[in-house]
Amino acid sequence: MALLTNQRSRRRSGARRRSARHDAATAERGSGRPRRRLGRLVVWVLLVGLSLLYAYPFFWMVMTSLTLRENIFAQQIVPDPVAWVNYAELFENSLIWDWLLNSVIITGTQVVVGTFVSILIAYGFARFEFPGRRVLFIVLLATMMLPIHITIVPLFVMFRDWGWLDTLLPFVVPPFLGEAAFSGGAFGIFLLRQFMMTLPRELDEAAKLDGAGSWRTLWLILVPLCKPAIATVAVFAFLGTWNDFFAPFILLTSPEKLTMAVGMQFYKTDEASEVHLLMGMGVLNILPIVLVFFVAQKYFVRGIALTGLKG
């Protein structure tokens, strides 16, 4: 149960209380009513069956990516021999290195710079009075609901006029302005601002009395307390950028300028005999997400539970 947050651990203790009460109740009635045991069994069978169904596509993907070309039609469930050589073959294609690098640059900028700037903006909204703040905050909320498909045509034209098409600039510049131009930067600002609002103002006042300016107050007092929210925002920035397809697909064209998600298409052929390489590319696309997921699971779950925002 490592992925539970504080707030949930309260619930957990609630569950424990509940279960103690329940145990007492069953003890009174005579333990293990057959109907209840049958119910448990049904739940178990359903969970095991359904989770296998949900996991199988991943299993098939990994297994196929490790199957030798000549064994693809051999209907092996687990490949024999295990063909790591497929991955070597993938990495012989120098384009993959370009795509990886591009994806890392775009995602890294969004995660590091985007999150950093979001903290500043959230701080401005959470802790300062200025004319028009109310209206600007409502505008911020409204941009969260604005679909990208409305702005993509003008953005395309604008980037064309600026000579930004087929470069990484449309992806690495907006984060400096707190915009994840294509995956909703407003969400991160909103989430951080909400979190900062829950922190007592006395902290700021105390820091001010000690002579700290607003900048030092932010980094020495607020940011350490906001770490969980910052982690959530960073995780969502990673997810939204790494897997993004719509914008890179439209704005990037040269083979060496693509990202991993868009480059994947190059392996999507109609020839079934290449499916092992295609699935290898799929694994390379998904693996970073899975790794981040297991490292930062609680931030995924919290982000979703907080807002239900799609990644």
Partner: peptide, 18 residues
């Protein structure tokens, strides 16, 4: 007041442009 606007100024620029 100006400090607050300064902190959110990147967002205002981004909002207008993008």
């Amino acid at each position: 007041r100006w400090t607050g606007l300064l902190y959110i100024s990147p967002w205002i620029a981004g909002l207008l442009i993008f």
